[in-house]
Amino acid sequence: PSAAADKVFHWKFQSHHTAGSLAVERVIKPFIERVEKMSGGRLKISLHYAGELVDYAEVDKALQDNMIQISNTSTLFFRGSIPMGWVSAPNMPPFITRTNDEFNELFHHRGVDRLVNEALEERGIKYFGSHSVGNTYFWSKKPIRTLEDLKGFKVRFFGSMSDFVEHFGAAPVMLPHPETYMAIATGTLDGSGTAWWLYRDLKLYEVCPYFIGPAMQVPQGMELWASKKAWDELPEDIQAMVETAAHVFNQDYMDAVTMEEREMFNKSFPEWGTTYIEFSDADVKRIIDEFSLPYLDKVAAEQGPKDPRVAEAVEIIKQFMRDYGYID
């Protein structure tokens, strides 16, 4: 027991969520409290909301410099410089995994997370794995019942999802985020899409009466990162505590978004007058065959030469889909 055993560590947690959001209240704050309690007050974490210290696009550099110590973010935001970002959880094309368990299997047990970890470790980042931030849907001012209805649909979507709708004739519009609500209200946009709870929290049900499924990413994934420098300074026992708390973080997040999504479907949709529409099984099959698979192959072909791990990840994903009977 040296002096280091009693040393108090102070970490800064830069979230890309705003105060009061589901992520902050149900997941991040409990995580911070848990770490502080487990460590007997030896690791204290201060929480900083979206954009407070650094924007989401600069957290990798801020972590490398040990300016902030922990952040929930995603390799997707850095896919321009980290090729593995192309196969990170939020950039999955539609209908790869269909349940939370399948997501666990693919990312935590089949090796995709291991590959992301390797890529991030090289950059001085300690990686705590992918977690669910809720299923991905989109919503619209007008009913979208079939893929044909996507023609000319002006929508704000992200990453691979934007390529998906464009493939079927929609027109993805890249608008500044704060302008989305107004843009839908006035008709500049016909709809937007991402994790379901933004439909609830940004009050988009006021302007979009149609909610379109089935969920295209089950779930949309994000990641928890820490600064390698800060991590290495921690005594081993605290490291073990943070690992454990991060596990719970991932589980808490998945539970919270799953339960609250049910509640929205059952309780809020009737109150808001939202109509839920699903693509047919035939359309889902078409999306996989005509978009998702070719998209994965394209990513492997384009990013594989920069980082062979990308091609390896694509192989893992395709094997997973074969095992589950989603592709032949």
């Binding site: 009061g20 609500y181 107004m182």
Partner: peptide, 22 residues
């Protein structure tokens, strides 16, 4: 007076209808 970036920011954080705030 709408459109207002401050009110969008407030509505997003406080989870209040942005249309209502406008």
């Amino acid at each position: 007076i709408p459109p207002s970036i401050s009110l969008v920011l407030y509505g997003t954080i406080a989870q209040v209808s942005i249309g209502g705030l406008f």
